[in-house]
């Protein structure tokens, strides 16, 4: 007498419902439902547009010196007033934003790009990881400001110098984050499944691993952007930035600090622009993180 039936049945009974689970809202839709995100995106759009459209909104050379118009308070003729050399602060802020935001954008693209490639390699190949992580440790232990000052000393203060030094300094933290995410994702069953299918390694990166780590990369990018804008302003302020011939928010603040009691608006407006940018970027990063957080964004 057998315990179970010796011959198995031809069919087993049972079924599965044929209904599709409804799609959840897209990331963009959820972001638009978040008031903080909406406000910070709006602020960033206004700031970017005013920088891009600066030649139209405030035509003329922003560095043009008009000694007769020194220290005019904000008014209808000069929205943001004039500085110690009679330059129009409205022009300076708008045109300065071009440099500041451009530097921020380029630094973000370069440092995040390198961090993603190296982080992916580091998370995937253990031998590379050991070397790369020690380099990152070294880079993180080294004060960024010292590195940037040294770079300015060697290469001379210029936009290239600022972009190069800020990119190098900002690679390290992003690389850490990307590597950590890749280490988590590579253990997912979907990666083993892709390997069992025969997906080549490069395609594994681009089609499976990178999309899975894109959320933290996006969040990190918004913080790197704000760090880069702030970094440029800081470097320019202490005189190792983009140099006096070009205009940025940091540069504008450098000279303005001598007249802060006499004409506070010279400091106020570039400072406000800078603060608004940083605040908007950081708030956007925070709300992005909320929206993309897998624990909140469960889609089952």
């Amino acid at each position: 007498m057998s315990v179970t039936q010796a011959t198995s049945p031809d069919r087993l009974t049972g079924g599965d419902e044929e209904v599709f689970v409804t799609t959840n809202k897209s990331v963009w839709q959820r972001l638009m439902a978040n008031p903080t995100a909406v406000v910070s995106i709006a602020a960033l759009v206004v700031l970017s547009l005013s920088a891009i459209l600066a030649p139209l909104l405030a035509p003329g050379n922003p560095l043009k010196v008009t000694p007769a118009d020194r220290f005019i308070p904000p008014g209808l003729e000069h929205f943001f007033g004039t500085d110690n050399l009679g330059r129009d602060m409205f022009k300076m802020v708008l045109h300065g934003g071009r440099t500041s935001l451009l530097v921020g954008l380029i630094v973000t693209v370069i440092s995040m790009g390198i961090a993603v490639v190296l982080g992916a390699i580091s998370g995937f190949y253990r031998q590379v990881d050991v070397v790369l992580m020690r380099l990152v440790d070294g880079l993180m232990a080294f004060p960024g400001i010292v590195l940037a000052t040294a770079a300015a000393g060697i290469m001379g203060p210029s936009m290239t110098t600022v972009i190069t030094s800020l990119s190098i300094v900002l690679i390290a933290p992003s690389l850490r984050i990307v590597r950590g995410q890749v280490l988590v994702v590579r253990e997912l069953q979907m990666i083993e499944a892709a390997r069992s299918v025969g997906v080549p390694t490069l395609r594994l990166f681009t089609r499976y691993i990178l999309p899975a780590v894109s959320s933290p990369i996006l969040v990190q990018a918004s913080f790197i952007f704000s760090a880069a804008v702030l970094g440029e302003a800081g470097l320019s302020f202490i005189g190792v930035g983009i140099g006096p011939k070009e205009l940025s928010w940091g540069n504008a603040l450098t000279e303005a600090r001598n007249y802060i009691s006499q004409a506070p608006w010279i400091v106020l407006f570039p400072g406000l622009a800078l603060m608004l940018t940083i605040l908007a970027l950081n708030l956007l990063g925070d709300s992005l993180r909320d929206v993309l957080d897998p624990r909140l964004a469960r889609r089952r």
């Binding site: 997912l188 069953q189 979907m190 083993e192 499944a193 892709a194 069992s196 299918v197 089609r207 499976y208 999309p211 899975a212 889609r299 089952r300």
Partner: peptide, 14 residues
Amino acid sequence: QMIFQDPFGSLNPR
């Protein structure tokens, strides 16, 4: 080819 235990984990969600 292989079929895995966890149908939630073995497919690329993207």
